[in-house]
Design a binder for these strands. Sequence first.
DNA 1: ATGTCTTTGTGAACGCGTGCACAAAGATTG
DNA 2: CAATCTTTGTGCACGCGTTCACAAAGACAT
Lengths: 286, 286
Amino acid sequence: MATGRTHRPATRSRGIPEATVARLPLYLRALTALSERSVPTVSSEELAAAAGVNSAKLRKDFSYLGSYGTRGVGYDVEYLVYQISRELGLTQDWPVVIVGIGNLGAALANYGGFSARGFRVAALIDADPAMAGKPVAGMPVQHTDDLEKIISENGVSIGVIATPAGAAQQVSERLIAAGVTSILNFAPTVLSVPDGVDVRKVDLSIELQILAFHEQRKAGEEAAAAGSADADADGAPDAGAGAPDGAGAGTGAAPAAALMPPAGRAAAAAARKGGPDGDVPAVMPA
Amino acid sequence: MATGRTHRPATRSRGIPEATVARLPLYLRALTALSERSVPTVSSEELAAAAGVNSAKLRKDFSYLGSYGTRGVGYDVEYLVYQISRELGLTQDWPVVIVGIGNLGAALANYGGFSARGFRVAALIDADPAMAGKPVAGMPVQHTDDLEKIISENGVSIGVIATPAGAAQQVSERLIAAGVTSILNFAPTVLSVPDGVDVRKVDLSIELQILAFHEQRKAGEEAAAAGSADADADGAPDAGAGAPDGAGAGTGAAPAAALMPPAGRAAAAAARKGGPDGDVPAVMPA
DNA sequence: ATGTCTTTGTGAACGCGTGCACAAAGATTG
DNA sequence: CAATCTTTGTGCACGCGTTCACAAAGACAT
């Protein structure tokens, strides 16, 4: 792409924005549903509605893949299914391993959607010797000791980590050393990996916290709309002087007790101490 | 990373960009870890490293909350934990219900991280009569018939949907009608909800597909770098002519069979027919 | 063939998020 | 008290992603 005049649309060679890639699976799902109903073609408008996105965005997304539509008609469902599948690499088989067979790991192992799209669970791995050999989802759990061997023998390049947070980093290092270059991380930790390795994380706790934020905000606006008395309300937390701060904030239920910085600290910390966060109870991300 | 969003027209009410809100839980986790080690203060540099973000970004994020740092020193850990918790609304109790107690639902019910941050599982709900009364995570599963009653009696405003895709939309409607205004959706469907309701979705299948895309791309580049013969390589997906493309990619096994558009269609469609996608085998999103 | 109607593909404007770079603020030392 | 050093808070520029709006392309009817 750098050599002199490699004249070409150049645009879409290596293009395909991340945001677009992230939506392709969404389109694919909607298209698959249409395909099952034997719908021959769809307009960008219809498909966009089914995928829950803007039609212009969808068209632009598809434009990165090439011109697969027919003006005045729409897109050929089957053909598009094929093209997107190919673009995503779903036309080939991807063996994956799941490390950490706790509650979540087991649920993932039983996950039907895995095999549905070219992903094949090649092995289930756990550090607990008691788990070894035990069948989960019709497949015997193997011990961590054999991790490297399993990876190389099966040509695994994608690993799923569902271990407690404390073990995640080490597991990722072993996976990578063994040849894995893509990781789906369910453990509540920031994995540091070398360049060239892709990591995506799924974090339930974070999603819930984000919802809580919006929920609180909604409650605040509601309160503000109702009793429009206190102007400041949840206003900008001016930590300025002494202990003022947005005290009178009627936002939530937040009583007085939870408002002064230096004092409340102890309580806050204490309340969290026992909490499962550092290593998670073998269930899921925290 | 977990996906999902439901953008609001304009969050003009009180700054705090969505992107920042999404990172606050990350900071909170890192801070909590520091707190447990009794570290009194952290610099933006250290905290940023622990959270896996850019330090300038972190400082800017915090600036939206107010000026909680001390120049030349850093941030007071405990104080910051408190402020972020308050901002996220974690100082209050959030009762949540989990609908759909399959493999995943059960794993979520057992999830320790729930209660760790102010979230309390108020009830487990499932449509299967056989599940009713059955204890999961030390709590009896209740039948869908009582959904509305459960929601209102417990003042639930956050619902978690872990049902098969086919039931998700209807469940969401009942939850919303009963008073829920925030939903965490694990079902592989696009939920259409009225304004004012927040939906975040976690979709394992999509994450894996995104990884597969990058994995394929890496394989393509690798092949291109090695045998620099065919210039085009993984370039623009010219479905047209022959069967070039990054075939020789060592990684996978993509044979020739999976390359022609009009022909492969049938196979692709067929392979998917029986696949669990339309309604998911009571395990997880597809 | 010609005209009309539908729908794609995309140029261009806009807004958000990111990261740099630096002045201001405060701690610390002599 | 002055000098120096550390770290925050933020103005600014850049790039990505989203959205609008419309010309071009093709189907379809006459």
